[in-house]
Amino acid sequence: MEELDKDCLFCKIITGEANSYTVFENDDVKAFLDLSQVNPGHTLMVPKKHITNFFDYTPEDAQRYLQYIPTIANAIKKFDPRITGMNISSNNGASASQVVMHSHIHFIPRFEGDGLKIATRNNAEKYTEEDYQKVAAAIRAEF
């Protein structure tokens, strides 16, 4: 098994030291129900290697672990015909509300009228053409 962190909850789930409700598992990833169950079927997918978050992924890590996103999303969607959408997200870093510091992806099934609100904000009125150009150029310079 790849390098794991003995103090990490998700590493303990991978090794079986901590209980989980597994829905999919292979040599690369494990997917299991999130105990919060924001909506029925809310699932987490974790790589079977301790990676803190996407900032620490190599291109090879991304290719190896993220290829399972469509497979897991489609299985969750098929389990309940009432599912009409899905939020697929990852919180990266404490300031982005990452609680367990092991990379994981949330699959949150969505139902018409489920009342769940994902908080965002629109700051478009605060940006000029020059502001957009400046931010885009600064990001481009980092590639």
Rank of each mutant, 00 (worst) to 15 (best):
E2A: 15
E2F: 09
E3Q: 11
E3T: 14
E3N: 13
L4V: 08
K6M: 05
D7E: 14
C8P: 03
L9A: 13
F10L: 01
C11N: 01
I13H: 02
T15E: 08
T15N: 04
G16S: 00
E17D: 15
N19S: 14
V23P: 01
F24D: 02
N26H: 11
D27H: 09
V29R: 03
K30D: 04
A31F: 05
F32M: 11
D34P: 11
N39E: 08
N39G: 01
M45Y: 06
V46R: 03
P47S: 01
P47M: 03
P47G: 05
P47W: 06
K48M: 10
K48H: 07
K48V: 06
K49G: 04
I51Y: 01
T52D: 03
T52V: 15
F54Y: 13
F54G: 07
F54T: 10
F54N: 05
F54V: 14
F55Q: 12
D56Y: 13
D56Q: 13
P59Q: 02
P59G: 06
A62M: 09
Q63T: 13
Q63F: 10
Y65L: 07
L66N: 14
I69D: 03
T71Q: 13
I72Q: 01
A73L: 05
I76S: 00
K77S: 11
F79N: 14
D80A: 04
P81D: 12
R82K: 15
R82T: 00
R82H: 07
T84N: 14
M86Q: 12
M86Y: 06
N91K: 11
G93R: 06
G93N: 09
A94S: 14
Q98L: 05
Q98W: 03
V100D: 02
V100K: 08
V100Q: 06
H102F: 07
H102G: 02
S103I: 02
S103A: 15
H104M: 08
I105L: 14
H106M: 10
F107M: 04
F107E: 00
F107G: 07
E112I: 10
E112M: 04
E112C: 00
G113M: 02
D114A: 07
I118S: 08
A119N: 13
T120Y: 14
N122C: 10
N122I: 12
N122Q: 03
A124P: 00
A124S: 15
K126Y: 11
Y127P: 00
Y127D: 10
T128Q: 10
T128C: 09
E129N: 12
D131F: 08
D131T: 15
D131L: 02
Q133T: 14
K134I: 09
K134G: 06
A137H: 05
I139R: 10
R140L: 13
A141H: 09
E142R: 15
E142A: 06
F143D: 08
